[in-house]
Amino acid sequence: MEGLQIPLQHVLLLAGALFTCGLAGLILRRNIIFMLMSLEVMLNSAALAFIAAGARWGQPDGQIIFLLILSVAAAEVSVGLGLVLQIQRRFKTLDMDQANRLRG
């Protein structure tokens, strides 16, 4: 590509940093809405890595995997937010350490 010359390593580093942010948020936060947001960030960083790889070789496969990730994220977040409503109604809290009926 003559216009934009970004080394693939830099894009992958950025995707890895975003994924690490999402993972840290998932581990550290206990509010289930923030945990869902962290999952979104992680899926998004994976999509960025796929797009970068697709752009590196000029193939459409990266964008197709991005579409699949998009549908996975949409399905996951709709079910997850339905669960959030149920948990809020049943436990009266969004703190996941309170909702430990399985004693995990």
Binding site: E40, I51, Q63, L70, A73
Partner: peptide, 26 residues
């Protein structure tokens, strides 16, 4: 970033579905 990487279709979908639909659910 997607637009700059040469994926305008993915950039449009990212805005429409991620920043639009999924965030509206939140």
């Amino acid at each position: 970033l997607f637009f700059l990487l040469g994926a305008p279709f993915a950039a449009a979908l990212e805005i429409l579905i991620y920043a639009g639909a999924i965030m509206v659910l939140f």
